[in-house]
Design a protein around this nucleic acid. Sequence first.
RNA 1: GGCCCUGUAGCUCAAUUGGUUAGAGUACCGGACUGUCGAUCCGGUGGUUGCGGGUUCGAGUCCCGUCGGGGUCGCCA
Length: 589
Amino acid sequence: MLRTHTCGELRKEHVGQQVTLCGWVDKYRDHAGIVFIDLRDRYGKTQIKFNLEDNSDIQKDARGLRYEDVVQVTGDVVARPDDMINPKLSTGAVELRVATLKVQSKAATPPFLPGSSDLPNEELRLKHRVVDLRRPELQNALIARHRLTKLVRDYFDRHGFLDIETPILGKSSPEGARDYLVPSRVHEGCFYALPQSPQIFKQLLMCGGFDRYMQIARCFRDEDLRADRQPEFTQIDVEMAFVEQNDVLEVIDGLIADVLQKMNGIEMTTPLPRFSYADVMERFGSDKPDMRFGMELNDLGDIAKECGFGVFSKTIESGGRVRGLVAPQAAEKYTRKMIDELTAFVGVHGAKGLAFFRVNESGLDSPIAKFFSDDHQQAIIERVGAKPGDLIFCVADKEAITSAALSALRNRLGKELELYDPKSFSCLWVLDFPLLHFDADEKRWVAEHHPFCYPHPDDIELLKTDPGKVRAQSYDLVINGYEAASGSIRIHDSKIQQQVFDLLNIDEEEAELRFGFLLEGLRYGAPPHGGVALGLDRWVMLMCGYDNIRDVIAFPKTQKASDLLSGAPSEVDEKQLKELHIQLDLPNE
RNA sequence: GGCCCUGUAGCUCAAUUGGUUAGAGUACCGGACUGUCGAUCCGGUGGUUGCGGGUUCGAGUCCCGUCGGGGUCGCCA
């Protein structure tokens, strides 16, 4: 080893020992007669000093050191004078009096300094990820990520799960997300697809008798990115045989409680709360509500119907909905201009307007208050539970739009009004998702989750009469408003599978073509099974309190899915294309 | 694909209503300094204002296009 200790290790009890440290120059303070350098590695920082009288040659070399040089130093650990102790450093009680210095690597002037308080723009950070990775925030995220995956593996191991790998080169399935394709050299004109998830393979593992499976699996989806979405991401993939929905939920409840306790010191009571899809959609307008705060949605349909405000009454007449929420003590905080901003904000979600009422002692104050009688004003105040000083927002539109607009508004207001502790966690299950939804454009039923999702046992008959009402045995885990996990009980009964395929307009031939190898697997004795997949990146992001997934991935991609570090994706040699029988047909510009 | 934000020195930012030679801090280079820990002090180098057009006597600033980065809607079974 080139070092005896790390830069985060030395304490008072090491005083008098001769040690060797290696690290990066984090800071240098040159006083001519004495030079101080903060030496940094992933464990911390240690101040090393070079005295002129100790060794003038070494001291001269030390004066030439610059940011991010990599050095190896040997010397005695000495106690700092009492008034020179640095409480900001874990090693602040001591320093290293350097006797020998070896510059292992002289650094070019870095584009930015990992120790700087000004964070450079993300483009630069991604391009120079090597430097960025030295920042404590990124180091802590990747360390947390490691600890989390370790805890996850240990937890599942304790519960009898086997970690089994599934293929990366797989078969393209036209449904779902766009696939990343990999051309086959051996099979002319044929392509592999990278897995969107190991879904089918884990079901086949169940059929293969491995009744408890888990994998930390890389997944690939060629879709547009978001702050919480990368083209390649990692799932904690889980599948269990001979289970019902509750068994899966209990296993994951245990995992969440175990991990949050060990990682964040938070005690979760299990089982985690469970809500139906219908319930959360009505109360929060979202299938992934952030329940760290209240501010529930209220139905104002009956009042809206009777009131003199045409926008409201007509919306109800045409089958739409009028719903509202209360921003507590926000009447004074939000100026007209800010409310206009909020109106534009809900407009993004399709709302044509945003009605608002300031609540005062006598009733409602608003440009549209005159359309509401005193009785109606009191009814609104009572319905939403508003107090003087509150601000009521309403959206009148088709149900889906009121949900989208108000849930987005709710999340925004909750944050702006600081209605919750950003360090807290709210975890809950959303159950009983609809099995199908009707695609109006394509005029056909589409699976809400995927085509192998088992319908709710009470709703099997509805498959024939009213498919839109059929609930699925599917479940999402929601943490702080993010979809943190998603899963379902799968169909293992070929008759029901056939019924679902019929509804989805997938005939036998097509089913064989698309999912033949799964159906084949299910044919020879399939155990009842179900599972779940947890988004690892999002989970780490939440535990670190970060708001984007790139900060918990060592080498992430940009919104346009390029890697600024390596330059991927890139053009390839003509020769490589020829070998793969690929001809480019690029749009002319 | 749509909408919004953004691009000025290596980095973080400034630049009045379109008006002189585009500034500051930091980094970098040189000098001073023996207890600093955002060291301090003195001096210096550093700019095709992302790129391409246009309007104007005059553009970092206005307009059009384009490229990169970010947010978001659609999309993500």
